[in-house]
C-alpha cells in the first residue's frame, strides 16, 4: 500500500535532517551575533558608534531569522501555517495601536505567543521572526528585532510545552520571565542599531536613566527590563484568556496541544 501514488511514504529522514541543520544554524547565527555584540562593545557606544557592529548585528540577526524560517516553515502543517498570517496581522495591528498611544508597552507579540501555545516552540520562533520581517514592510525600524521576536516565540512555546498554561496564574509568571530574556536580548540591538528607542514613552524612560548618569547601553537595558517583563506578562495573560475561550474542537486539532496536554481541564469548555 505504501507504493500507492495517492499516499505519502513514511516521512523522509534526509529532508528532516537538513531542516534541523537550518534551524540550528539559524539559532547559532543569532546567538553568535549576540555574544559578539556584548563582547565587542568596550569602546563606549556614544563615543563615535562603530557602524561595523551595527551592520554585523543587522546581518547576523537577519540571517539567523531567515535560516530559522527556512528550516521551520516547510515542516509546519497547513492547518498551522494558515494561522501564521492571522497571528501576524494581530501582532501588527495591536503593535501599531499601542505604539501610537503613550503607553510604555508594545503588545506586539500576542499573535506570536498564540501560535507558540497552539503549535509549539519551533512554530512560535518562526512566527516571531516572520512577524519582524513582515511588519518591517510597513515599519522598517522593527526589522532588527526579528531575532528577539523569534526568541519570545520560542520561549512561549517552551512555557506551553512544560504546562505553564495549565494554571491561569502561571501564564503571567512565564511571561514575566520571558520578558526578562527578551529585554536583555533586545537592548543591545536598540543601542547599536538606533542609539535609542523608537517610541516617545520608552525614550522618556531611557533619558531618565541617562539623567541619573547611566551609560547608554545600561540605560536602554534598564528601560527594557522595566517594559518587557510587564509587557510579556500582559501578553501571556491575554493569550491564556484567548485559548481558554476557544472551542475545544478547535484547540484539540493541534497535535502539540494534545501531545503535551498544554491546556488544563479535559471536560470544561
Amino acid at each position: 500500500m505504501s507504493s500507492s501514488s495517492l499516499t505519502l511514504p513514511a516521512s523522509g529522514q534526509a529532508a528532516g535532517r537538513n531542516r534541523r541543520l537550518l534551524e540550528i544554524l539559524g539559532g547559532a547565527s543569532i546567538a553568535a551575533t549576540y555574544v559578539y555584540l556584548v563582547l565587542a562593545q568596550p569602546t563606549d557606544l556614544t563615543n563615535g558608534l562603530s557602524s561595523g557592529s551595527t551592520l554585523l548585528a543587522l546581518s547576523g540577526f537577519l540571517l539567523g531569522a531567515v535560516l530559522l524560517i527556512a528550516g521551520v516553515l516547510p515542516t509546519v502543517p497547513t492547518s498551522t501555517l494558515v494561522l501564521i498570517p492571522v497571528a501576524l496581522v494581530l501582532n501588527i495591528v495591536l503593535g501599531q495601536f499601542i505604539g501610537s498611544t503613550l503607553v510604555p508597552f508594545y503588545l506586539d507579540s500576542v499573535g506570536t505567543v498564540l501560535i507558540a501555545v497552539l503549535a509549539g516552540p519551533a512554530a512560535g520562533a518562526a512566527t516571531g521572526a516572520l512577524s519582524g520581517i513582515v511588519w518591517s514592510l510597513f515599519n522598517p525600524t522593527v526589522l532588527p528585532f526579528a531575532a528577539g521576536a523569534a526568541l519570545i516565540g520560542f520561549l512561549a512555546g517552551l512555557a506551553a510545552r512544560y504546562g505553564l498554561f495549565r494554571r491561569f496564574y502561571l501564564a503571567p509568571v512565564a511571561g514575566f520571565v520571558t520578558g526578562i530574556f527578551a529585554g536583555v536580548f533586545s537592548a543591545p540591538i536598540a543601542a547599536f542599531v538606533y542609539g535609542g528607542t523608537s517610541g516617545i514613552a520608552t525614550g522618556a524612560v531611557v533619558s531618565a536613566f541617562r539623567a541619573m548618569g547611566d551609560s547608554l547601553l545600561s540605560a536602554i537595558t534598564k528601560q527594557a527590563l522595566l517594559s518587557d517583563p510587564m509587557d510579556k506578562a500582559i501578553v501571556f495573560s491575554v493569550v491564556a484568556l484567548l485559548v481558554y475561550a476557544l472551542p475545544r474542537r478547535t484547540t484539540l486539532q493541534f497535535p502539540f496541544i494534545r501531545r503535551h496536554r498544554v491546556l488544563a481541564g479535559a471536560k470544561t469548555s
Binding site: T141, T197, S198, G199, I200, T202, G203, S207, R210, A211
Partner: peptide, 24 residues
Amino acid sequence: PAAAVIMVPFWLSLLLTHGLFFHE
C-alpha cells in the same frame, strides 16, 4: 508621509535621550 509617521516619534525620542542628557 508613511516615513514621517515612523520617524517623527523616533527623532523626538532621540532628541529627548541624547539632546538633553549626554553626559559624555
